[in-house]
Design a protein around this nucleic acid. Structure first.
Lengths: 148, 148
DNA sequence: GATAAAGTTTACGTAAACGTAAAGTGGTTT
DNA sequence: AAACCACTTTACGTTTACGTAAACTTTATC
């Protein structure tokens, strides 16, 4: 049960909601290496995984070049050369630092969004109060409201 | 104690490690609005905060246009219009969803990096073992090694 | 008052990541 | 066989986010 399927370019395009143009571009840049039947591309499950990684990388702010570097490095790493292995470990460390930074950024952003939301709700509540007052004491002029 | 300082373009440039070109560009795009003394820019603490937000936004994968949209919206929100307030709350919700996605992406990436690192270390251990064997049984040919 | 240091505008250049025709290939459905 | 579909290549266009000179003021320093 090894899921030995293959995929057409439009299948992947639909599944991941990217244009075929993008997929071809990723191949052009060396990030995907589909087989060919004639001139038609045939994507393996490995290609599919890589596409998923590419897109996630993008969401995380990686450039295609960075992602490609990781792919290439990982391929080289599999050959078992010691220098490559050590370099891979280094790069993994660097990425972890980057992820830590991103996590901090996200936490910060969440806090600020909390206070922003709170202020919005306060302001809305204020407006509701004003409305009620207007309901009770109608026809207050705009200028008078503004002066509060 | 309101920290009422101002900043020159190069001060900010150095503090946040961005080029003056970038800072001028951000102004050009309407993200910063420094005062002027003659034609020289004078940045307030508010500008400084915004610059920080711009850079964090970039690290989080936001475009300048998106960040500007948030700035503008927040400014409008402060005027207290109800429609603006509700729109702001909507956008905040959307951003939260985006942050959740990013957190998932990061968690996934961390897991994969864990297994990648483990494999690297295994491979390295294997190499060390091979080296020892070579030390004990020297002059093994490359072909023989490859056949294992 | 010359000269350097830091600031400015204007404007063309560039890399990344595709978009968008245009024109052709290969299979299959009617 | 005509028409249609999915796929292809080639190639120029576009947006974003600056880089990089060039030529010019303004301010500080010797």
């Amino acid at each position: 049960m090894v899921e030995k399927r293959t995929f057409s370019i439009s299948e992947l395009s639909q599944e991941f909601d990217v244009t075929t143009r993008s997929i071809r571009f990723y191949e052009d840049q060396g990030l995907l290496k589909p087989r060919r039947r004639g001139q038609t591309r045939i994507f393996s499950t490995k290609d599919r995984v890589r596409l998923k990684l590419i897109l996630r990388g993008k969401r995380m702010g990686f450039t295609l070049a960075e992602t490609k570097e990781l792919f290439d490095l990982w391929d080289e790493t599999l050959t078992g050369n010691e220098k490559q292995l050590l370099k891979m470990l280094e790069i993994l460390e660097a990425r972890r630092a980057q992820l830590e930074q991103q996590k901090n950024d996200i936490a910060q952003a969440e806090m600020e969004m909390d206070t922003a939301e709170a202020r919005c709700r306060e302001a809305l509540a204020e407006l509701q109060k004003k409305k009620k007052e207007q309901g009770l004491v109608p026809k207050e002029t705009e200028e008078a409201v503004a002066q509060k």
